[in-house]
């Protein structure tokens, strides 16, 4: 089973990289971009075949290493 973890900065946490991307899009002529937030995607190839077990395992990974929950949110997507 594969899992995809989406990590994004929490609302209210300054994202200077997202802001810079927004400026660059404006310079390229893309109007109407009200905001840009950037994050990261981590793909995991897991031995687990049970969805519940896999989700629990990835949840622990997110809390202990993959995300810093002081500043980041994470979303786990399981792919069969």
């Amino acid at each position: 089973m594969k899992a995809r973890v989406h990590i994004t900065l929490k609302d209210g946490v300054l994202d200077p990289q997202g802001k810079a991307i927004g400026h660059a899009l404006g310079n390229l002529g893309f109007d109407g971009v009200n905001g840009v937030r950037q994050g990261k995607v981590i793909e995991l190839d897991l031995a687990a075949t049970d969805r519940g077990a896999a989700e629990g395992q990835v949840e622990q990974m997110c809390r202990r290493l993959l995300a810093n929950t002081v500043i980041e949110n994470y979303k786990i997507e399981l792919i069969d």
């Binding site: 946490v13 300054l14 200077p16 990289q17 810079a20 810093n68 002081v70 500043i71």
Partner: peptide, 15 residues
């Protein structure tokens, strides 16, 4: 990151 101190250190505001 080891939990010895609170908060977080983000990318510099000026990048």
């Amino acid at each position: 990151e080891a939990g010895l101190l609170p908060g977080a250190l983000l990318r510099n505001a000026g990048l």
